[in-house]
Computed example of a mutant assay.
Amino acid sequence: MLFSNYALGAGVATDLVNTSAAVRVSTGEALHDPAALARFLDEHGLHLGAGFRGGRPTDEDLTQVHALRRETRALLEAATEDEVADGANRLVRRAATGPALLRDADGRWQWHITTMPRSSVADELAVVVGAGLLGVLHTLSHDRFRHCASPVCGGMFVDTSKAGRRRYCMPGLCGNRLNVANHRARQQRSGEAPAAGRRTRDH
């Protein structure tokens, strides 16, 4: 992982936290088995634990990633910058071996974070998440760690956008759900009946 690519780790942290059943109330746990965890990693371009066990997650990996998810949520909810820094540093230390100057895909020298051989999926994922959170804390600010603005969502996110105005953990979903809820409230106040058969997507 590039030291400079904190948006990757922050995005993984956001998406990991929002896979839980507590956030996805209607659909339930997103990481319900090792295959679901494998899809999550593939969707983020992460090839963790690829050096052994065929690179595919196991039940033990799943249990450990669920624990990491709880740790990550606690860091996003931390009250102070120092708490975030301490916790994220601990995540990085789980498997990182320190910086390494390596060539990127274009042949340019870049600082990378490397991990110990045969590290577990969860420990390598902890490095990705921890480095991302530290990068946001250093480059942006602690106030980029936020609760979703939708009153019907328990999700959280790390805003790495340039403007820093993101409001929802899943913008295309939570914003739409809030608009639908507001529309229904207006209909009820005005005595209108909701359109028959209309359905909305949920977490």
Rank of each mutant, 00 (worst) to 15 (best):
residue 102 L to D: 02
residue 77 E to L: 15
residue 31 L to I: 10
residue 117 P to G: 01
residue 53 R to W: 00
residue 113 I to G: 00
residue 112 H to N: 07
residue 90 R to P: 01
residue 35 A to L: 15
residue 112 H to D: 06
residue 63 T to M: 11
residue 42 D to I: 11
residue 114 T to D: 08
residue 86 D to R: 15
residue 102 L to S: 00
residue 30 A to W: 15
residue 87 G to K: 10
residue 90 R to E: 09
residue 22 A to V: 06
residue 29 E to S: 09
residue 85 A to M: 11
residue 51 G to R: 01
residue 60 E to N: 09
residue 81 E to C: 04
residue 92 V to Y: 06
residue 5 N to C: 03
residue 86 D to H: 12
residue 69 R to D: 14
residue 29 E to I: 12
residue 73 R to G: 05
residue 48 L to E: 06
residue 99 P to L: 08
residue 38 A to Q: 15
residue 99 P to R: 10
residue 43 E to T: 13
residue 43 E to L: 12
residue 22 A to R: 13
residue 73 R to D: 06
residue 75 L to R: 08
residue 28 G to M: 07
residue 66 H to R: 15
residue 25 V to G: 01
residue 114 T to E: 14
residue 39 R to N: 13
residue 76 L to W: 08
residue 107 G to E: 04
residue 82 D to G: 10
residue 43 E to S: 13
residue 25 V to D: 02
residue 14 T to R: 02
residue 82 D to L: 10
residue 23 V to L: 05
residue 21 A to S: 10
residue 34 P to L: 12
residue 6 Y to L: 10
residue 36 A to R: 14
residue 90 R to C: 02
residue 112 H to K: 06
residue 112 H to R: 12
residue 32 H to V: 13
residue 45 G to C: 10
residue 81 E to W: 12
residue 12 V to T: 09
residue 10 A to F: 07
residue 103 R to N: 05
residue 70 R to Q: 14
residue 73 R to M: 04
residue 46 L to S: 04
residue 27 T to N: 11
residue 101 L to K: 04
residue 85 A to P: 00
residue 64 Q to M: 10
